[in-house]
Computed example of a mutant assay.
Amino acid sequence: MTKTVLVTGGTGYIGSWVVKELLEMGYRVRVSVRSFNRKDKYLHLQNLPNSSNLLEFFEADLLIDGAFDNAAEGADAIIHMASPFTLRFKDPQRDLLDPAVKGTRNVLGAANKSSTVKRVVLTSSVAAVHGDNIDMKEQGLTEFTEEHFNTTSSLKHQPYSFSKVNAEREAWQINAEQSKWDMVVINPALVLGPSIAQNSNSESLQIMKVLLSGKYRFGAPELYFGFVDVRDVAKAHVLALENHSASGRYIIAERVANFMELVAIINKNFPDQYKLPKMVAPKGLLFLVGALFGLSPRFVARNVGYRIAFNTNLSRQELGLVYTPFEQTVTDMVNQFRNN
Score class of each variant (00 low, 15 high):
residue 66 G to Q: 13
residue 118 K to I: 01
residue 186 I to K: 08
residue 111 A to S: 01
residue 281 A to G: 06
residue 278 K to M: 09
residue 246 A to C: 05
residue 84 P to H: 06
residue 206 Q to V: 12
residue 114 S to G: 09
residue 270 F to E: 06
residue 258 N to W: 03
residue 125 S to H: 04
residue 5 V to Q: 10
residue 241 L to H: 05
residue 21 E to Y: 14
residue 271 P to I: 07
residue 150 N to V: 13
residue 205 L to T: 11
residue 165 V to Q: 03
residue 42 Y to R: 05
residue 231 R to M: 03
residue 112 N to F: 02
residue 204 S to E: 08
residue 291 A to Q: 12
residue 136 M to W: 03
residue 226 G to C: 13
residue 257 A to M: 01
residue 7 V to F: 00
residue 319 L to V: 12
residue 251 I to G: 01
residue 247 S to M: 11
residue 189 A to I: 11
residue 41 K to L: 10
residue 215 K to Y: 11
residue 166 N to Y: 08
residue 106 N to W: 03
residue 93 Q to G: 05
residue 7 V to D: 00
residue 18 V to W: 04
residue 74 G to S: 05
residue 301 A to F: 02
residue 291 A to N: 12
residue 317 Q to V: 15
residue 232 D to K: 13
residue 196 I to N: 03
residue 21 E to H: 14
residue 52 S to Y: 07
residue 27 Y to A: 10
residue 239 L to C: 13
residue 307 R to W: 07
residue 12 G to T: 01
residue 293 F to T: 12
residue 276 L to G: 00
residue 34 R to W: 07
residue 201 N to R: 14
residue 59 E to N: 12
residue 151 T to H: 13
residue 2 T to G: 07
residue 267 N to D: 11
residue 22 L to N: 00
residue 237 H to P: 05
residue 89 F to T: 02
residue 297 P to M: 12
residue 207 I to P: 00
residue 196 I to D: 02
residue 154 S to I: 05
residue 304 V to S: 09
residue 213 S to Y: 08
residue 206 Q to A: 14
residue 182 D to S: 13
residue 163 S to R: 10
residue 273 Q to Y: 00
residue 43 L to K: 15
residue 74 G to V: 05
residue 218 F to W: 14
residue 210 V to N: 10
residue 120 V to F: 04
residue 37 N to S: 15
residue 158 Q to C: 09
residue 318 E to K: 15
residue 143 E to C: 15
residue 236 A to W: 07
residue 329 T to I: 06
residue 285 L to H: 03
residue 224 Y to R: 11
residue 305 G to Q: 12
residue 193 G to K: 00
residue 297 P to N: 14
residue 30 R to K: 15
residue 75 A to F: 03
residue 234 A to V: 05
residue 88 R to P: 00
residue 274 Y to W: 06
residue 288 L to N: 04
residue 306 Y to C: 09
residue 275 K to L: 08
residue 162 F to V: 14
residue 67 A to S: 15
residue 10 G to P: 04
residue 188 P to V: 12
residue 209 K to M: 11
residue 2 T to M: 13
residue 169 R to A: 07
residue 204 S to L: 11
residue 318 E to N: 14
residue 228 V to W: 03
residue 60 A to I: 14
residue 61 D to M: 11
residue 33 V to D: 02
residue 231 R to H: 06
residue 3 K to G: 10
residue 170 E to W: 10
residue 26 G to R: 11
residue 145 T to W: 01
residue 283 K to Y: 05
residue 302 R to I: 05
residue 138 E to S: 11
residue 146 E to A: 10
residue 91 D to P: 07
residue 183 M to H: 06
residue 193 G to H: 02
residue 208 M to I: 15
residue 91 D to M: 09
residue 53 N to M: 08
residue 159 P to I: 06
residue 113 K to S: 04
residue 300 V to Y: 02
residue 280 V to F: 09
residue 75 A to H: 04
residue 284 G to P: 01
residue 60 A to W: 08
residue 238 V to Q: 07
residue 269 N to T: 08
residue 87 L to F: 15
residue 237 H to T: 11
residue 101 V to N: 12
residue 122 L to S: 01
residue 306 Y to L: 12
residue 18 V to T: 15
residue 327 E to L: 09
residue 324 T to P: 02
residue 34 R to C: 10
residue 220 A to F: 11
residue 296 S to A: 10
residue 326 F to C: 09
residue 236 A to D: 03
residue 114 S to I: 09
residue 29 V to S: 00
